[in-house]
Deep mutational scan, measured.
Amino acid sequence: DLSALRVEEVQNVINAMQKILECPICLELIKEPVSTKCDHIFCKFCMLKLLNQKKGPSQCPLCKNDITKRSLQESTRFSQLVEELLKIICAFQLDTGLEYANSYNFAKKENNSPEHLKDEVSIIQSMGYRNRAKRLLQSEPENPSLQETSLSVQLSNLGTVRTLRTKQRIQPQRTSVYIELGSDSSEDTVNKATYCSVGDQELLQITPQGTRDEISLDSAKKAACEFSETDVTNTEHHQPSNNDLNTTEKRAAERHPEKYQGSSVSNLHVEPCGTNTHASSLQHENSSLLLTKDRMNVEKAEF
């Protein structure tokens, strides 16, 4: 173990290094160091905050020279020094078990990766560091076993998940096959086929009936047209017969005018059967003409 005197000496050296690497504005270890034209180094955030307070150039807090945003430059070497100082402080805390008085939040800088452990060898070769390295080497064999167990647990979990997924996939297939086998029997399929065939026959029977009705309507229309044509021909046949009657009536009127007047009046009210309204109107006109002729003949006879 380190003596108290040596611990104090190391602590004083760390404090001196820390004062050199402090920012003059925030009085902390410089984060993202930036250098000016006057070779003074500050935190990048502190300098941008200072420049944004005034429009135009501002003055350096140490030498009062003008500073602009374009004049600022990043210093990589200074950032490396800060990183190495942080590593020294971490090693000091691990070796002594004491917390550094002016320690900052170094938890963000710590890294437990194997590459980081290899890099620590180049920091300080001390008894405390050696003991700590031995402890780490002793704890390393235990870690692979834990990793193997965790991997086995994960693989077993994956296997159970896969088996569950396969079961879920197989179950719908089985149910679907069961439904297909038990849903419709052979008799049901035959009945469905016969039902479809009967429906098709009914459709075939319905369509000819409609065509037959249309044919019957067409035949009825044709018969009505033929009947009207026969009526017209009958009226045409009746007209010459009426003319013959008129000639006979004229002759009778010349011989017996008194008797014919009474008979002509009675004939006005008689309509021949089986004739249309057109034929009756023609008869009325003929009878009126005959009456006028008879009157003329009677007057001539009187004179």
Rank of each mutant, 00 (worst) to 15 (best):
Q93L: 13
L164K: 12
C63H: 15
Y129P: 14
S197I: 01
S145N: 11
V161S: 13
L289N: 03
Q209H: 14
L203H: 11
A223M: 02
P24Y: 01
L5W: 02
D294A: 14
R212A: 10
P272Q: 03
L203I: 06
S152T: 01
L86I: 06
N112T: 09
E214G: 11
L164M: 12
N15C: 09
D213G: 14
E9N: 14
K118Q: 11
Q11Y: 09
S266D: 11
I88F: 11
P57M: 05
S35L: 10
K192T: 14
V13G: 09
P144I: 04
K192G: 15
K250R: 02
K109R: 12
E99A: 12
V153A: 10
D188Y: 03
D231A: 12
C273F: 04
D1G: 02
D95I: 15
L291W: 00
L151Y: 09
E271V: 01
A220I: 06
T230I: 01
V153I: 01
E236K: 10
A223I: 02
T275I: 13
K49T: 04
K55L: 03
F45K: 06
S75M: 02
G182R: 11
K250Y: 05
C63E: 10
E140A: 13
N112S: 13
A91L: 14
L81V: 10
R77P: 14
I89K: 03
S3P: 14
E258N: 10
Q11R: 05
K87S: 05
K64F: 01
T230S: 10
T248S: 09
M296R: 15
F45N: 12
P141Y: 04
V190Q: 01
S150Q: 07
K167L: 13
V10A: 08
P114L: 09
P61N: 10
K31C: 13
E22C: 06
R130V: 06
R165H: 01
T76G: 11
L289V: 04
L117N: 05
N267V: 11
S71Y: 10
I20T: 07
A91V: 13
H116N: 01
K222P: 07
Q138A: 04
T277K: 15
R70A: 12
V153P: 13
G199R: 10
Y104N: 00
E84R: 08
C26R: 15
N52W: 04
R255K: 08
E110N: 13
P172H: 10
D244L: 04
E74G: 12
T163M: 02
V265L: 06
N15E: 04
E140F: 05
P141T: 10
F303M: 07
G199Q: 04
S152G: 11
Q138F: 03
K64M: 01
S197V: 01
R135E: 11
H278P: 10
F92I: 10
E74N: 03
I215Y: 07
